[in-house]
């Protein structure tokens, strides 16, 4: 659906390449996660893909056609949410949405969307009076109001409470189930780990690794078992390799003789893998 080939970009005043020769493609119906620390180039990549930034090197195809050949009709097809929620603050949520809705041929079911993000009751409030979370949710409605085929979501969970983040992820999943394709970025891995079909790790404008979260976990995950037990009033932690654990005498002995407190398989998170692969810590100072 989307194919990015040898993309390079530097901002007009910046000297070095912010995007440094990246290639990837996104299949129809896929949720593609773009993960990396702040400043890695996630937003820049999205801005290039949605035809906001021009003068990049490389080629980008949408449905087999070079995106530079598309007219503004391109935007009938896609929905975009930017990193920060953007609205006319002195207009109500509904006035905002109605204004944008009129600019599209395709019109989604606004009431359903607004109810879904729990803003329907507050639709006649000024957006300026909305909380940060409400603005973010309204941003999602704005991105989806034209029933797009493809969604671009830049850090959509950033600033949402866990409950609303869950609703958002459900919406993204349902969007995919209805045939939609999604490009989603985050600097918090755990946030979108579960919904992505495939993820790319981006650091300093380069893609370091790209695969399904499951394959990455198999490839880089620690295959181990961690056991915590009580001994003389103190908690002792020991780790065993997962391979051949059924015949590991020491492990079996502990299981039978000690008071076990916890027992975990060494399920590695995507975040651990990211750090391992890229050598870069994800959490930023903010």
């Amino acid at each position: 659906m989307f194919k990015v080939e040898n993309l390079k970009y530097s901002y007009p005043k910046g000297e070095s390449d912010v995007i440094n020769d990246i290639s990837f493609d996104i299949a129809k119906g896929e949720i593609f996660g773009f993960l990396g620390p702040s400043g890695a180039g996630k937003s820049t990549t999205q801005k290039i893909m949605i035809k906001i930034l021009e003068n990049f090197e490389g080629t980008i195809y949408y449905n087999g056609k070079d995106i530079t050949e598309f007219s503004d009709e391109f935007y009938e097809d896609i929905g975009v949410s930017f990193e920060m929620p953007i609205h006319f603050s002195k207009m109500t949520a509904m006035e905002n949405i109605d204004f944008f809705l009129k600019l599209y041929k395709n019109k989604g079911d606004i009431e359903a969307l607004m109810r879904r993000v729990d803003l329907w009751e507050d639709r006649d409030k000024m957006v300026g009076e909305y909380s940060k979370g409400m603005k973010i949710r309204l941003n999602i409605v704005r991105a989806m109001l034209n029933n797009p085929n493809m969604l671009f979501l830049d850090e959509p969970t950033n600033g949402l409470d866990p409950m609303n983040a869950m609703i958002l992820k459900d919406m993204v999943r349902e969007f995919k189930e209805a045939g939609g394709t999604v490009f989603i970025t985050s600097h918090i891995m755990s946030d979108i780990d579960q919904i992505c079909d495939r993820v790319a790790f981006i650091v300093e404008g380069k893609i370091i690794e790209m695969d399904t979260p499951r394959n990455l976990k198999i490839k880089y995950g620690k295959r181990s078992m961690t056991l915590e037990y009580k001994e003389n009033g103190e908690t002792v932690t020991v780790e065993f390799p997962l391979d051949g654990i059924g015949k590991n005498e020491e492990f079996l002995n502990l299981l039978q003789t000690k008071k076990i407190e916890t027992l975990h398989s060494g399920e590695t998170t995507l975040e651990d893998i990211f750090i391992k692969v890229t050598g870069v810590q994800l959490k930023d100072a903010e």
Partner: peptide
């Protein structure tokens, strides 16, 4: 308000 970016991603020329 940065609203111009939102206008850029609509079908408006």
């Amino acid at each position: 308000e940065f609203t111009i970016s939102t206008m850029l991603v609509t079908p408006v020329s």
